[in-house]
Write a protein that binds this DNA or RNA. Structure first.
Length: 569
RNA sequence: GGGGCGUUAGCUCAGCUGGUAGAGCAUCGGGCUUUUAACCCGCAGGUCGUAGGUUCGAGUCCUACACGCCUCACCA
């Protein structure tokens, strides 16, 4: 029997003495954050390990006591036959009497989250990776009453009579946070909760560090982001937010695959940081003695692939911009960028509606969601406004007058826009749009026909060469996507780069650099194409109703905990 | 980078006009064999972010610094 059930062959004996050897552990000064000393062989050198607190020292003492009795507090000998979600799905609706007559035996494992000791009986609750809101069915009392679940956890009932006095004593030393395994028969308690009546119980992994309090949990933002692992254990919402983000990534891939797009990867180390207007991170390759930039956008490499014949491609990848941080900006963020030959920006508007309604439908099972306390309806088609129309709509100024520099200046002065004298007319118009129109674009809205000056990689509009065939998508007042018909005339592109160089010389730090290899690629002819970039993080914020970009990034950038470790330049 | 707010026990938080630090939960000890934030009794736990200053005396007032949050700027 033991051979068949390796997870349960060693129900461990009593721990007689749990008193930790505190004197030894406190013989070295505690250093905040230090978790482990040097290791000379495969075994941890416990005497080098300095506990950060009395509570950790106590738990270390428990682990030592287990070892003294031949029990490995970090065993991997376990067999599990149900995740908690499986168990709830398979057996969650069964009544008290069904469970009694069927005698269903299950083996489960999870993290101990609640522990209620009642003398010779204890109620434990465990959590595993399958725990998700909505999976656990209502409880059923013996007289047929339904009791709504209060958590997503599986309850275990450990009784001294059932497991034996020694094992019962042992389990009393378990701590919240420990991983444990249990097997036994399913039952319902008096209050109707589906519960494993434990026959065998085993500690799998000792948790040395106490979890936050069960009622208030972990709410400190700094700790939540620094120690995301604790956040995910404690906060269902945090886990759900990241789950939605990862699910969105999966769905986006699926959507592109279904439409014949090839997923590609292009360099993150660039010698020329192009494809967007942003300040790059600088790094250095030692062997080549070469300064390199972390990419600010994959755009120019993706279009080189289009030249090479990958006519429908996409990349989901990290971009890096050396700019300020805010609820919408993390220095590294994820962009999904894609190109389609023989398409225009008009095609991509429809494509974008299809992609986003697919995501919203799959994740929310409907077209309406709540984001930033707005009700947002994704039912297509979405309104399309030109930049000029949008500014006109929200300022009341006649659209035709927005082509007049003086009128733009007057509006800029009216909303206290700084430094507008030095802006070219296109930049000024966009600054007005950002300040006056964008915040109103709560429902999904395409804004089209951007000024040429702010779009050095876009194809000119054939009717009005001061504009480009470009759109951005706004949702909840946030920019979510940016797309255009690609400029594929190498001479025009060269001239645009020259204009950017002039802007740079005039002090525009983010002007696009000249990229002669890109020009050379275009000289071989890039098919007419349209391309788009979607900020995956911001999209995830919308899908998950996250207040800041840090919620949808598992490990957002924070300064180091213990102050600067490098010299300030 | 500017402004505002915050940092007190493992967690969540009190701590008034300056007088040597408290609660709940968790831990530890005792009791309790169907609990649901279980309950009852008891013990322990803190270099009040760091460094200076004012004061007879600082968690509290002042200055600087560190980290975080909000906001503006920068920025998509």
């Amino acid at each position: 029997m033991a051979a068949n059930r390796p997870g349960h062959d060693a129900v461990v004996p009593v721990i007689d003495q749990l008193e930790p050897s505190l004197a030894v552990r406190h013989s070295l000064p505690a250093i905040a954050g230090l978790t482990c000393g040097p290791m000379n062989n495969n075994e941890p050198q416990c005497s080098e390990y300095v506990p950060e607190s009395r509570l950790i020292a106590q738990r270390l003492g428990k682990a030592d006591s287990l070892r003294d009795r031949g029990i490995n507090p970090f065993t991997n000998q376990v067999r599990v036959d149900h995740t908690l979600a499986d168990l709830f799905r398979l057996h969650g609706e069964k009544s008290h009497t069904e469970l009694q007559s069927q005698a269903i035996e299950v083996s489960v494992a999870g993290r101990l989250r609640f522990f209620r000791r009642m003398g010779k009986a204890s109620f434990l609750k465990v959590q595993d990776g399958s725990c998700q809101p909505g999976i656990k069915p209502a409880g059923q009392t013996a007289d047929g009453r339904k009791v709504p679940p209060t958590d997503d956890l599986l309850q275990l009932l450990v009784q001294s009579d059932m497991v034996g006095a020694e094992a019962y004593e042992l389990c009393q030393s378990f701590d919240l946070g420990d991983y444990i395994a249990a097997s036994g028969l399913l039952m319902r308690t008096r209050t109707g909760e589906l519960t494993v009546q434990v026959r065998r119980l085993k500690l799998l992994t000792k948790s040395l560090r106490p979890l936050p309090e069960k009622w208030h949990g972990l709410s400190d933002m700094e700790t939540r982001f620094r120690q995301r692992y604790v956040d995910l254990i404690m906060n269902d919402r945090a886990k759900e937010t990241l789950r939605i983000r990862f699910e969105a990534t999966r769905l986006i891939r699926q959507f592109f695959y279904q439409r014949g797009f090839v997923e590609v990867e292009t360099p993150m180390l660039h010698t020329t940081p192009g494809g967007a207007a942003a300040r790059p991170f600088l790094t250095h390759h030692n062997a080549l003695d070469l300064d390199l930039y972390l990419r600010i956008a994959p755009e120019l490499y993706l279009k080189r692939l289009v030249v090479g014949g990958f006519e429908r491609l996409f990349e989901i990848g990290r971009c890096f911009r050396n700019e300020g941080l805010s609820r919408f900006h993390n220095p590294e963020f994820t962009m999904v960028e894609f190109y389609q030959a023989f398409a225009t920006f008009l095609d991509l508007m429809t494509f974008t509606e299809e992609l986003l309604t697919y995501l919203v439908g799959e994740i929310h099972h409907g077209m309406v969601l709540t984001c930033d306390s707005h009700q947002i309806d994704f039912t297509p088609p979405w309104p399309r406004l030109t930049v000029h129309q949008a500014v006109a709509k929200y300022t009341g100024v006649d659209e035709d007058r927005l082509h007049d520099r003086g009128e733009l200046e007057r509006l800029a002065a009216g909303c206290a826009l700084p430094d507008h004298d030095s802006m070219n007319t296109g930049k000024l118009l966009m600054a007005l749009f950002d300040a006056l129109a964008q915040p109103h674009l709560v429902q999904p809205t395409f804004v089209t026909h951007y000024p040429l000056e702010v779009s050095p990689l876009s194809r000119k509009n054939e009717a009005d060469p001061t504009l480009v065939d470009r759109f951005e998508l706004f949702v909840a007042g946030w920019e979510v996507a940016n797309a255009f018909s690609e400029l594929n005339d190498p001479v025009d592109q060269y001239m645009r780069f020259l204009d950017q160089l002039k802007a740079k010389a005039a002090g525009d730090e983010e002007a696009h650099p000249m990229d002669l290899d890109y020009i050379r690629a275009l000289e071989y002819a890039m098919p007419p194409a349209a391309g788009e970039g979607i900020g995956l993080d911001r999209l995830a914020m919308i899908l998950a109703d996250a207040a800041t970009i840090r919620e949808v990034i598992p490990f957002p950038l924070l300064r180091p905990e213990s102050g600067p470790t490098t010299t300030v330049e």
